[in-house]
């Protein structure tokens, strides 16, 4: 276990290094990426610009700039170009919304995918399977923003079931928090429900023909127990590993679209705004934070995986 943790830590450092270098470099090479001009404000004199360049260190060699940036990230003192505020506090402000969205959606898509997938597998070839298959394929093909926009239009604008947009903290009102998140959760989950239920359906259909399922039947177990304890249990393994990666992906950036559509003011939305403003410091921090979460969640999923499949060992 200690070796596993150490190894994962080492991997995380490498991942973070490359992610940070690439993100930093991208903003060096994109056109109009010169932040000094924007920092100096409109109609700035060359002297002002030169002062800004010196003040922010834009005249230093690029690796020094990178090192400075990383130093500030680790001391938590990154200041954004556009608003001159501390980036970390901005992220902290947006984190509850993002986490509420991602965790809620993650739970929803996992639970629904298992229910839909299992139902399809049990009723394979029947009407309900065909119907759900059709819906799954539709869900997989529907982009998040389309589902979100449709949901907004029909359920918030035409019929006022849900609020139009915004985020209400959990501490303020549980009911409001929930109501504000229902549509975002659904729009984020739909694709994954479709995808996962398909995978689960086919894994279960495969596993139904395994020898140990026949053994279970020969032991006198009821079909329901066979299905849950033997077929479903082993079929969850691929789903869980998919879930780990996708969940990390959603937290690390996949939620951006939904946050923007529903104006949740979370980290994703902050990232989107920063991209529009070519504001490098917040993006660096957000990308790093995403990468840390991805690595961390992947490690957690590996631990979960061992619990699900004892044949797997935590070594790597």
């Amino acid at each position: 276990m200690a070796r596993f943790a150490l190894r994962r830590l080492f991997q995380a450092v490498i991942v973070l290094f490359f992610v940070s270098v690439f993100t930093f470099l991208i903003f060096q090479v994109i056109p109009d990426g010169t932040p000094a001009l924007r920092l100096a404000g409109k109609s700035a004199t060359p002297q002002t610009i030169a002062a800004v360049v010196r003040q922010w260190g834009f005249n230093k060699p690029i690796w020094v700039q990178y090192a400075d940036m990383m130093g500030r990230i680790f001391t938590g003192s990154v200041i954004s170009y556009s608003e001159h505020v501390n980036v970390l506090s901005q992220i902290e402000r947006g984190l509850p919304a993002t986490l509420s969205l991602a965790i809620g959606a993650g739970v929803i898509w996992f639970v629904f995918a298992v229910v839909v997938g299992a139902l399809c597998a049990v009723r394979a070839g029947h009407f309900i399977d065909r119907l759900l298959t059709l819906l799954s394929l539709t869900a997989i093909s529907a982009p998040t923003f389309v589902v979100g926009a449709l949901g907004l239009y029909f359920l918030a604008w035409r019929v006022h079931v849900f609020p139009l947009s915004g985020y209400v903290p959990l501490s303020q009102s549980v009911g409001q928090w929930f109501m504000h998140l229902v549509l975002p959760w659904i729009s984020l989950s739909v694709v994954y429900i479709g995808l996962y239920s398909r995978v689960l359906r086919s894994t279960m259909l495969d596993n139904m023909h395994e020898d140990y399922v026949r053994t279970a039947r020969a032991k006198g177990l009821s079909e329901r127990k066979i299905l849950i304890r033997h077929v479903l249990r082993t079929s969850l393994i691929p789903i869980v590993s998919m879930w780990g990666l996708d969940f990390a992906g959603v937290i690390g950036g996949g939620a951006i679209l939904v946050e923007v559509v529903f104006n949740l003011d979370g980290v994703g939305q902050y990232a989107a705004e920063s991209i529009q403003a070519l504001d490098v410091p917040p993006l660096m921090v957000i990308v790093m934070y995403g990468a840390v979460l991805v690595v961390l969640i992947a490690a957690l999923v590996d631990v979960l995986y061992v619990w699900l499949d004892p044949r797997v060992r935590l070594e790597a």
């Binding site: 395994e210 020898d211 140990y212 026949r214 053994t215 279970a216 020969a218 033997h230 249990r233 082993t234 393994i237 699900l308 499949d309 004892p310 044949r311």
Partner: peptide
């Protein structure tokens, strides 16, 4: 059964 390698549930 014939194949004890696969006749038991692996998990």
């Amino acid at each position: 059964f014939q194949n004890p390698m696969t006749a038991l549930n692996p998990v």
